[in-house]
């Protein structure tokens, strides 16, 4: 009996090379696709949950021209933007469309404070991020920069990624977004003829010494 020596056939060489190339490609693909697939742009933008009450911003804020702060009354006073309680709706809906089925949940919440309307949250940051509406709105950043044309939405949809890269992009050059404070809720505002966004933005930035946190991680992660 001859001692069998294990000899690899020649084609193994090619196979090994192929395997190595394949592994490298796979790793590359996983990294590239993984990054692309999990970016906030891919994962979050477009979220548009169905709300318990078919409330339309297009009708109330758009057609009727109601100011955002009529309902989101804390937006320039606190970190969070209050989603209005049923009382705010009932200011009008005790008289207008007072028997509409679409408003049944609102009437129920108004009559019994222990049954608030459970609105579905659309824009959501992770709990480890600190965000304040007050600071942004009072320094002249409009709702439209972060929420899009809400006044044209029948149902609210997330249009901006709200990722870290996106926050930083504006923090590096806020002059591209700043406008006079009284127009923050006028979502269709454009710089008056003869001026540019940059001119107005830079002026506000310099006058009010606006320096949003960029390298200072603790500005947003506190």
């Amino acid at each position: 009996m001859k001692a069998t020596k294990l000899i690899f056939p020649k084609w193994i060489n090619t196979a090994v090379r192929l395997a190595l190339v394949g592994a490298a490609l796979t790793a590359g693909a996983v990294v590239v696709l993984g990054k692309f697939l999990t970016m906030p742009e891919t994962v979050d933008v477009g979220y548009q949950p169905t709300q318990p009450v078919p409330y339309s911003h297009k009708l109330h804020a758009g057609e009727m021209g109601m100011d955002c702060r009529f309902c989101h009354s804390t937006v320039d006073k606190a970190d969070f933007a209050a989603v209005p309680p049923a009382q705010t709706c009932m200011v009008c809906h005790t008289a207008i469309k007072k028997d509409s089925d679409k408003l049944a949940l609102i009437r129920q919440a108004f009559a019994d404070a222990s049954k608030p309307v459970e609105w579905v949250k659309v824009h959501k940051l992770p709990d480890f991020v600190y965000f304040s509406h007050k600071v942004h709105v009072n320094s002249g950043v409009s709702c439209v920069s972060c929420h899009g044309r809400v006044d044209q939405m029948e149902v609210v949809q997330q249009q901006k990624p709200l990722g870290m890269a996106w926050c930083i992009e504006c923090h590096k050059a806020p002059e591209n977004a700043l406008r006079p404070k009284e127009f923050v809720t006028k979502l269709d505002w454009t710089p008056p003829p003869g001026t540019t966004q940059q001119e107005i933005g830079l002026k506000i930035k310099n006058e009010n010494k606006i320096h949003p946190p960029v390298e200072n991680c603790a500005g947003c992660h506190r």
Partner: peptide, 28 residues
């Protein structure tokens, strides 16, 4: 490996379609 690789690409492309929140799906 090639097959696995091709499968991976296809799978992630498919997953990509699913990841994008088409309206009502809660973001991943």
């Amino acid at each position: 490996t090639r097959r696995i690789f091709i499968l991976l690409v296809l799978a992630s492309a498919l997953a990509g379609c699913g990841l994008r929140p088409a309206g009502n799906t809660t973001p991943l």
